[in-house]
């Protein structure tokens, strides 16, 4: 059951064709959400961590490409 200011029609409107689903992976001991590419590499979308210092580490910066 959804309780949101966004309507369910908008939430479940379907997936845009050019937007692949995100994957969560472990990389250097951190959990990351990445957007996989077709070349075996993925782009970091976000870092899943509670430690604020991790977000200052450029290795986990959004947009960084990592090998999957």
């Amino acid at each position: 059951m959804i309780w949101s200011i966004i309507s369910e029609e908008d939430i479940f409107a379907g997936q845009p064709v050019d937007m692949p689903a995100l994957r969560s992976v472990d990389h250097l001991g951190k959990r990351l959400l990445i957007r996989p590419g077709s070349d075996g590499w993925g782009e970091i979308v976000s870092l899943l961590s509670t430690a604020p210092a991790d977000f200052l580490d450029g290795r986990f910066a959004p947009g960084t490409r990592i090998r999957l």
Binding site: S4, F12, Q15
Partner: peptide
């Protein structure tokens, strides 16, 4: 969104 039992499409 707070995602729960249903996976939300990735535009969310």
């Amino acid at each position: 969104q707070v995602e729960g039992h249903l996976i939300m499409p990735s535009q969310n």
